[in-house]
Design a protein around this nucleic acid. Structure first.
Ligand code: FES
Ligand code: FES
Lengths: 161, 161
DNA sequence: ATATTACGGATATTTCATATCCTCAGAGAT
DNA sequence: ATCTCTGAGGATATGAAATATCCGTAATAT
């Protein structure tokens, strides 16, 4: 089991967008160049983010994407689910129904006990992702990245207005 | 992202094995019939459990599998990792290295802040799975399943000794 | 000796992630 | 008005991985 590469790309793109000057858009082309990933395919991920209402895109020259809400209101979970989907990593195919010993009666059994454990773990995973916002991430990055790199990023963005 | 079907199969098989009489083996064929899954492919999952030291197999007629240790000593995480692998669901491809603005110096950066959040969530998922043992599951099932179904399972197993 | 079983390798099939290409409509610059 | 640049979205190709089957071997019980 493995998450898509799109997830890493989307998270990094959102991190960039969160650090953008107010009302500034950044194009797919620039985001792709910034991360060294194929422009066309990254576009799909950004479209997913757009459809989820996390970012908004605008057309034409000087177009691109920006966050649709404040960074504090967008969590890792929002981004992951936009790209990867909201369905649990564990899918129960109800193989217990194939047990020849099962009670044939119309007893409505709830979900399988095994599935409940797996879904519970999945919920814990999502809760942890929902606990971190883009604002939190921006704070961490501002604290960790070398100041000169942050400055260079500012110039790089400024250069393509 | 989606876990393999093998995971559901392996968990259900372990649940059965946990309810087996002492020193009793159950063959792949019977386990496959019990769950309505392809015997050959289920065999691969059981081999993975065997290689992980969770179950042990014996050859010949009346051969098959049984738990290698007490049910209380085998967790959901053990089983999931035996089938699905121990590597995190999130893989960081270090796309930050592609950033043209990155500091070229030999500053040893630790893992990316984004990856840390994702790995942290993955750890929470695994911790939750490690918190439930086969003994816990057996207790839940004994409490939830209709008594007549449990009795029929006993007969079914007894019938193929 | 025979039948049965786990084990492991080889291979086919299907599904999905990855990647590219193309068309369309909206937005800005000239 | 015209042209260029952009995101949106569909169609399609490619590769890897999950799913599934088959076969040969060794070990075990009868
Ligand atoms: S039947 Fe799907 S997890 Fe038990
Ligand atoms: S570089 Fe991989 S998550 Fe940041």
């Amino acid at each position: 089991m493995q998450l898509r590469n799109q997830v890493e790309w989307a998270l990094h793109c959102c991190a960039i967008l969160a650090g953008l000057p107010e009302a500034r858009f950044l194009s797919t082309k620039d985001l792709a160049k910034l991360h060294g990933v194929p422009k066309e395919y990254l576009g799909k991920a950004l479209q997913a983010l757009s459809q989820a209402g996390l970012v908004e895109g605008t057309l034409g020259p000087s177009g691109g994407y920006r966050l649709a809400r404040e960074a504090a209101g967008i969590t890792f979970l929002d981004i992951v689910e936009a790209v990867e989907g909201k369905s649990s990593s564990f899918v129960c195919t109800e193989i217990r129904k194939n047990n020849p010993c099962r009670t044939p009666g119309m007893r409505k059994n709830g979900p399988c006990a095994i599935a409940r454990v797996m879904w519970d773990a999945d919920r814990a995973w999502r809760e942890r992702l929902a606990a971190v916002s883009l604002a939190d991430l921006a704070r961490t990055l501002a604290d960790e990245l070398p100041p000169d790199q942050i400055a260079r990023m500012g110039e790089w963005i400024e250069a393509r207005s």
